[in-house]
Structure formats: structure tokens, C-alpha cells
Nucleic acid binder design. Sequence first.
DNA 1: ACCTGAACACCGTTCAAGT
DNA 2: ACCTGAACACCGTTCAAGT
Lengths: 236, 236
Amino acid sequence: MADDSGHREPLNRERVLLAAVALADDAGLEAISMRKLAQALGVVPMALYKHVASKDELLNGMVDSVIGEIEPPQDGPDWLANVRRRILSARDVMLRHPWARRVLEAQSAPTPVVLAYTDSTIRMFLAGGLSADLVHHVMHTLGSRIFGFTQELHETSPAQAEELPPEVAQYMMATYPGIVAVAMSRPHDPGTVVGSGCDDRFEFEFGIDLLLAGVERLHRQGWRSADHDRDAASVI
Amino acid sequence: MADDSGHREPLNRERVLLAAVALADDAGLEAISMRKLAQALGVVPMALYKHVASKDELLNGMVDSVIGEIEPPQDGPDWLANVRRRILSARDVMLRHPWARRVLEAQSAPTPVVLAYTDSTIRMFLAGGLSADLVHHVMHTLGSRIFGFTQELHETSPAQAEELPPEVAQYMMATYPGIVAVAMSRPHDPGTVVGSGCDDRFEFEFGIDLLLAGVERLHRQGWRSADHDRDAASVI
DNA sequence: ACCTGAACACCGTTCAAGT
DNA sequence: ACCTGAACACCGTTCAAGT
């Protein structure tokens, strides 16, 4: 998606950011270097520094641009449905720009755009009548899920156990019986399963629904911090 | 913690890994380069390649060594308490080696040690009688929490709103009212609050307890995949 | 005043030359 | 056979020299 022809009109910040987003979408985050981005724009590397103070600022700008794609908050009467919908919209955006998640994670400080997104999400909970105290814990618990992704580490394994060489499958079953048992059980709707055989959307919705249901229950019960027993191995 | 004196005995893999862990604990992950690690060991950079095939393998070895510090699984009668205890042990380890989390996240494939840890955790749930199906979703939902950390992005803000210059506090309240409201509400036990004013352990335990309580409830109710309504904005 | 090439201080890793 | 220095192909960014 590199723009080779149009480098007649002058560069500006937006053109730089859009080109960077397109390059990352195409070639991955590791393709983003000041030098390569300049080349994609038909420009000398140092020319970028007129529009972007540093590589860090470039990356922040890219994330901000991606966050701008998330659907604005709805204000329907059902706060739970509003939140759920917003989070799933964030997830759609993150699926389009998989690199954005890594940049967001590596960010040392949130940009104003990221703060504004977080703020608006918080206000959806407050609008539902939840106490600031409860919302505080909820935000910690949801964590990166409000940005549409979860820390899942390594995809649970390729999971096509049937396609492995039999001696490898044998070895796996002997060494990691738990992983194999769990990886084999995937009774999801086959129509919605993507690629590697695991229905990521189902898992994501399962996670947020479990969390939101728990939160809603606590809210209904008038939960307060002091009720949470910190010492015993107690469960909420 | 660099070993300056003892570079008489020959290098071996373990010495390299331990020195790398110590260096990362001391100086942070960005201090880990083949060149700097070699210097810390009083050795020429290329000497490391005798014991470690590449920087990637070095990082994997460092994580493996850290995972080795996590308490082995207990097999008490209460699966929930067993799991909870193991996860909190993982958290203690990760607090000692904060860089490990970033390495684990960046890993493209799990090492055998990481797989073994995941496998043993899965088996704790299976030993509790949960179906492989439910455990599958649980593992997705817990995500990186089984390794003792959560994706929390940026610490919710420094949170000492009282210490901000009044015009900044004014600006924050006007611009991010939700964040401010939530950040101000921290009625935790002051004795356990660390550094920045937010009780991380409380938040972590709140999160796992909310999740484990939800899972336990589903298990008691004989939950099956098909019960989860994928289309409506339904909550479990 | 604007633009930009060379240069600096780093990387991980290859490879050939030393012993 | 082992060890290692120089070199390669990259970085982000500074800075001075060009226009």
C-alpha cells in the first residue's frame, strides 16, 4: 500500500500517520522504521521529523488514529448492552490493525486520545449507576479488554492434533495431557470458527460476559470494597 | 549484580542465564543486549553464542528460569483454593522479575517449560471435575492471569490528584471526569497500598476471584457451550 | 530559512582470520 | 579445534553543511 506516485503534494502529519498505519497493516509492526516509512512515502528519512518528533510519537499517533475508528458510546437505557457493544466494536477495530495492540501495550503513558476513550468507557458504567468504587475495580479487571483484546499469550496451540505426525501426537499426549484434552474439546459452531480452529470471538465474548455478569451481580447486591475478604482464599 | 571477579571458572548456560536474569532485575529489560551481558560477565560478546544460540533463545531461557520459581501445584481437596494459590504464587514471582512479563508476551511460541506450566494448571481444573470444554474457555478467559499478571495498560494514572498543580487538576476534572471520579475512589486498606497509591494485589485478587467465582458457578450449574447465546447481548 | 547527507552510537549476528 | 576481532546490515537521531 506504499504510495509511490503521489509524492508531489507536500507531506503533512496526517499523510505520515495514514501511510504508517497502512504499512503496519500490510507488512507488520517490524516493518515500521523511520527509514522504511520514509522510503514508502518517497521521501528522505529526515523529512519525517518535520511532522513527527520521534518514532515514539509516530507510534502514538498511529494508535490514536486506530482508536478513532472505534464506535462512539451509545446512550441506550441498558448500560450493560452499551458497554458490551462498545467493547465488541473495539475488538473489530483491533482485528483490522493487529499491531495496534502491541503498540498500546508498550506505551509508557497514555495519549489524550487513549485517556478520552478510557474516560468515556468509565462514564458508561457510572451512567449505569455503579459506584465509582466498583467501577474502579471493574476497570482493573477488564484491563485491556476495554480496548478489544486480551492477553492470551500463545493461542493455546495450533490445535490440529489430527494433522500432527503420530509420534508427535503421542509425545504431546504423554507430556501435556491437560493441554491436549482441552485443545481437543472445541464444540463451537463450525461456521464461525476462524483459521486455526479456535473461535476467538466466542472466547472473547465468553470472557467479557463472565466479567460483566459478575459485575452486574455485585452491583445489584450493593457490593462494597470492605466485603471482599483479602486474607482467606475466599471467592466473591 | 554483575559478576566481575569470578570470570575464572568457565562459562556455562546456567551462568549465562542467571547473569542475564540478575542484569534484567537490576537494570531492566532494555539493558539486555548480547554486548552488555557479555561485558557484565567479563567476556567477549561472541563467547555467549557458545551457550545460547541467539538473543531469542537467551530471552526464552530467562523466562524458563523465572517460571521455575513458581510454587508447584498443590493437590488439596479444594481445586479452587489450589488454583488460587498457584496463581498468586506466580504473581509473587512476576513482581520479583517485572521484565519477564514483557518477554513472555513477546514470545512467538511457548517453550516446553511454559507448556508444562500451562498443562499443570489445566490439570488442576480438570482434577476439580470441570469439563474439558469449560476449562478451555476458562483458560482463554484467565489468559495471562495464570502467569500472575494482567494487561492493565497504564496504571489508571498517577492518582495523586491532590498533589497536582490546581490548574492541571481543574483541567483533568473538566476533560476526563470519569477517570478522575474513579481514580479518587480508593477506599482500600491503607496499610497494604503500595507506592503509587493503588493496591495492586487487591485489584489482582478481585479479578481472579470474580472470574473463578463465575467459573465455579457455571460448573455447579452444569454449563455447556451451547447455553451461551452468541447473538443477543446476553450475559451468562 | 529550509532541507538533507553524513555521521554517531548503538544493535544482533556472520565469518574469516588468528591461535 | 577452539576462540575472537572485524565487518555487515541494520537502527533512531544529531548536527553541520549545503541550498
